[in-house]
């Protein structure tokens, strides 16, 4: 049984450049329907958790104009750099509108400029302050920010849960590979409905 007092839902990358139709890297996902599914599952979980002691944190990513955080990027990361996506202050970097109704319930931790939500941010401090022992991850992209943040949380001693129906990746292969083979190495893989 999950202890919501000590649990935080960490939302990663719920920003327009991924999720909005006009997002700069929106098209990198093989199956765009997955965006809607992820949003629906995530917002449903949030709705259930509003009014509970659980903490909900958003960690939007913004890159520096030179994208120095990325080393010889490939795939989505290269596209992010090439298209100047997630640059601070742009509409693409803004949190998606579907989370707007819950804004007052979401703690926004800014400063994420790389793949790991803990790096260069106050996330760890916020979690510590709230006495959080367990983090639940949702968002984009599975093989990058979710994995990086998940491992970092694990290294920091948090119990990590990853919601497989609330994360999105470029391909099915990637999604299945991480959900089935990587995440279980350090996290509990669950579906959002298991946390209602």
């Amino acid at each position: 049984m999950i202890d919501l007092d000590k649990t935080a839902l960490v939302l990663i990358g719920f920003q327009n450049d991924y999720f909005a139709d006009s997002g700069l890297v929106h098209s990198v996902i093989d199956d765009p329907c997955r965006y809607t599914q992820v949003i629906n599952h995530t917002t449903t979980l949030i709705e259930h958790w509003i009014g509970t002691p659980a903490t909900i944190i958003a960690t939007p990513i913004t890159f520096t104009p030179t994208y120095e955080e990325l080393v010889d990027p490939v795939g989505i990361l290269k596209m992010v750099q090439d298209l100047n996506a997630f640059q601070k202050g742009t509409p693409g970097a803004a949190i998606i509108k579907e989370l707007a109704p819950f804004r007052e319930h979401i703690v926004e931790v800014t400063g994420k400029r790389g793949l790991n939500a803990f790096a260069d941010t106050e996330l760890d401090a916020v979690l510590q302050q709230k006495g959080i022992q367990s983090v639940v991850l949702a968002g984009a992209v599975t093989s990058i920010c979710i994995d990086s943040t998940g491992r970092s949380a694990h290294e920091r001693g948090y119990q990590v849960s990853i919601l497989k129906d609330c994360i999105i990746s470029r391909t099915t292969l990637e999604q299945e590979f991480y959900v089935e083979n990587i995440f279980p190495l350090y996290a509990t893989v669950a579906e959002s409905s298991q946390l209602f």
């Binding site: 080393v71 790991n116 093989s143």
Partner: peptide
Amino acid sequence: DSSNELQTQIHYRLI
């Protein structure tokens, strides 16, 4: 964290 990020990018290249 930096190592983590680098590791992530390595994993990402692999994937």
